[in-house]
Amino acid sequence: MILEVENLSVNYGHVAALSGISLTVDQGEIVTLIGSNGAGKTSTLMAISGLAEKAGGTVRFKGKDITDLQPHAIARLGICHVPEGRHIFPALSVKENLIAGTVREEKISRQEIVRRMDEVFRLFPRLKERINQGGGSLSGGEQQMLAIARGMMMNPDLMMLDEPSLGLAPIIVEEIFDLILKIKKAGKTILLIEQNAAMALQVADRGYVLVNGRITQQGRGVDLLHNDEVRRAYLGE
């Protein structure tokens, strides 16, 4: 088990965003969290990566307790969080954004950076065309690609993707999901949050359904996809 979350709670003021959820992610899996707006999906990721204060519970990564670590220390252990809203560095060029992804490894060699960049450009040829352009001047879809590419430059053990398809054209959404499968094939573990439940459950090995800060269902992706309750609630049937 690469990630173990136990009884995690997050409060925003007096409002409980998460009330004691537990989930696990195994090495090499794609696990997805689905749920409607305000169910607590983003809060879960923010709490795991240390950006939201935890009211209770523990988080273990590769067996190490990371509950009380600072966000940068968690990132340095190999958890990459590609946040909702992209959060790329607008005034850094595409290349500099990608290099920013490698700073967690202090002793990385120049050749290794170039090698990873080539790998990323194989997946996102569009970014290569824009290598010297400012990050903020890219289109929404390109910014999303850059955010994922920057995450891959971190060479993480676990990638947490928050709504990677948000606000993108359908054709690009498909590209993004193809890419998620490619990243999995490269041996990475992925924790995926999606509004687009149908797509997410198709690529996922396992899924959790989040309702009002609680996990109500869990199971294999295909099973959830055919679960009546899930279909009614999230797939509009």
């Binding site: 990566s49 240390g50 950006l51 600072q70 966000p71 940068h72 220390a73 990132a75 340095r76 990459c80 969080h81 946040p83 959060h87 790329i88 560095f89 607008p90 005034a91 850094l92 500099e96 920013a100 992804g101 700073v103 967690r104 920057r150 971190m154």
Partner: peptide, 14 residues
């Protein structure tokens, strides 16, 4: 420069 542009994202990069 990353820190000056987006502190949250910078922390996420480690």
């Amino acid at each position: 420069r990353a820190v000056s542009q987006d502190k949250t994202a910078a922390a996420m990069m480690g």
